[in-house]
Amino acid sequence: MNCYNEQQIFDFINKELPDSDLRFIENHLQKCSICKDLYEEKLEEINSLVTSIHDFNKSAIYIPEFIFPKKPQFKRDYRFKPLLIMSIAASIIFIISISILLNSTKNTPPFDLELIQMEQDNVISDMNESWHNRDLIFTQFDEETGKTEVFLN
């Protein structure tokens, strides 16, 4: 005969087992004196504790009147309201300053582009000058002697 442990007996007392298990244990308790003793011991332990705790109860509990809210309360989170206002203001200021900056740059001549253009012109004029001042070198190879002669213009 399989006996039941303390936990199973405890769950049986609380009726926290499937119906079939409850019936099995109930039948078993009628036949087995060991389990029956354990059952009675557990039951006594539980009842004693539950009644004792019950004595801690306040003798009379006053039920205050419930005041119904006028409208159903909707949750609104106001914690970030100042932060929200500040971020909106900052973004407006940012947009305005960007637009001002863009307008001002549109009217002024492109100074950087002018500089680049001047540099390019200088480079081209330098190249032209060096082309005019170039030195021409002619070379002549003598097949008989096998020597190369160099002439400047």
Partner: peptide, 8 residues
């Protein structure tokens, strides 16, 4: 302190 039930 607990207010122990008057029955006690």
């Amino acid at each position: 302190p607990y207010s122990i039930k008057s029955e006690a």
